[in-house]
C-alpha cells in the first residue's frame, strides 16, 4: 500500500475529470438510454415516449427472425472460436519449440493482428467470390458447387473463415505468452525422463495452458458477438436470406435502416447482458489464472 501521497485533491479531481466526463457522456448515458428506450415506445427523432414495459422484449423473443439471428450468431461464434483457437494453439505449440527461424515465424504469425476487419472482409469476399479468384477454379471443375451469394451456409462458412483468420494472430500471441510462462525446468525434467515432443505437449504444456485457454475462449466468444460487424458488413450484408444476419448486424440494420429504435435498443440490452455475463466469467478465470509459478 502506498504511504506517500500528494495533498492537493483539487488537482486529482481535475486530472480524473476528463475521462469521467467522457465515459459519462459516451458510455453510461447511452447505456442508460438503451435500457430506457427498450422499455418505452421510442419515436425516431424525439416525440413522446410511452411506457412499454417488457413489450419489446416479449416481441423479440417471439420473433422467429430474432431467434434466427441468435442462431447464426452462435454458429459464427462457435465456428470462429474453434477454428481460430485451434490453429493458433497448434502454431503456438510448435513455435514455442524455438527451433531455427523462431523469430521469423513469430513475426509471421503476429502481423495479421493489424489488418482491419473491413479489409479482411473485402479480401476474403474476393477470394471466395464464385466468379473471380480461387473459388472460380473450383466452380469450373465442379460446375457451380460454390456460391456464397445465393447459398446461406456458404456465406456463413465464408465469414467464419474470415473471422477466424482475423483472430489467429491475437490468440497466437496469448498462447505463446502462456507457453513461455511455463517453467523451463518442467519441460527439461520431462525430456530427461525420456518424453518426446508430443508427449510433453499433451501431458505438460496443454494442461498448464488451461487458464490461458479459458481466458482466450471467453475473449473470442465476446469478440465474435461484438467485433463481427466489419466482416459481415463488407462481406454479406447479413444475406443471403439473413443467413449471416448476426445479432450485432441486426441491431445496426433495425436501428439505423429500419429506424426501429425501441427494438434495436432491446436487442442492444440483450447483447449487453450477454457481454457482461461473459466478462464476469472471464474475471473469475483471471482470478484463478496463476496456479503454477
Amino acid at each position: 500500500m502506498r504511504r506517500a501521497y500528494f495533498k492537493n485533491n483539487w488537482i486529482a479531481a481535475a486530472l480524473v475529470l476528463p475521462q469521467l466526463l467522457i465515459i459519462f457522456v459516451f458510455f453510461y448515458w447511452p447505456t442508460s438510454q438503451a435500457v430506457f428506450w427498450s422499455l418505452t415506445f421510442e419515436q425516431p427523432w424525439g416525440g413522446g415516449n410511452d411506457w412499454a414495459g417488457l413489450h419489446h422484449f416479449r416481441e423479440l423473443l417471439s420473433d422467429s427472425l430474432y431467434w434466427q439471428s441468435v442462431r447464426v450468431s452462435l454458429v459464427y461464434a462457435a465456428g470462429t472460436t474453434v477454428l481460430g483457437m485451434g490453429l493458433a494453439l497448434i502454431l503456438a505449440l510448435f513455435v514455442d519449440r524455438q527451433l531455427r527461424g523462431y523469430r521469423q515465424y513469430r513475426v509471421g504469425m503476429i502481423w495479421p493482428y493489424a489488418v482491419a476487419a473491413p479489409a479482411i472482409g473485402l479480401a476474403f469476399r474476393y477470394i471466395f467470390n464464385p466468379t473471380a479468384g480461387v473459388m472460380a477454379y473450383v466452380n469450373q471443375v465442379w460446375d457451380g458447387i460454390w456460391d456464397p451469394i445465393l447459398t446461406g451456409w456458404h456465406a456463413m462458412a465464408m465469414i467464419v473463415i474470415a473471422g477466424a483468420w482475423k483472430n489467429i494472430a491475437y490468440n497466437f500471441i496469448f498462447f505463446l505468452a502462456g507457453l513461455q510462462s511455463i517453467p523451463r525446468s518442467l519441460i527439461e525434467a520431462s525430456a530427461m525422463d525420456g518424453s518426446g515432443v508430443m508427449r510433453r505437449m499433451r501431458d505438460i504444456q496443454l494442461p498448464l495452458l488451461t487458464p490461458t485457454f479459458f481466458f482466450i475462449l471467453v475473449i473470442n466468444i465476446t469478440d465474435s458477438f461484438t467485433d463481427s460487424f466489419g466482416i459481415v458488413d463488407t462481406m454479406t450484408n447479413g444475406g443471403p436470406a439473413r443467413a449471416t444476419n448476426l445479432m450485432v448486424y441486426k441491431i445496426y440494420v433495425d436501428g439505423f435502416e429500419g429506424q426501429n429504435y425501441s427494438s434495436a435498443a432491446a436487442q442492444s440490452v440483450i447483447l449487453m447482458v450477454l457481454v457482461i455475463l461473459l466478462t464476469f466469467v472471464q474475471f473469475r478465470y483471471i482470478e484463478r489464472r496463476v496456479h503454477y509459478s
Partner: peptide, 24 residues
C-alpha cells in the same frame, strides 16, 4: 469507485450501445 467506473466500461463496447451513442 473512479477506477471501477472506468473499468466497467470494458463491458460496454460500442456495438451494444450504438443507437443511443449516435444520438449523443
Amino acid at each position: 469507485p473512479i477506477f471501477w467506473l472506468v473499468f466497467i466500461t470494458l463491458m460496454l463496447p460500442l456495438e451494444v450501445r450504438i443507437v443511443p451513442t449516435y444520438a449523443v
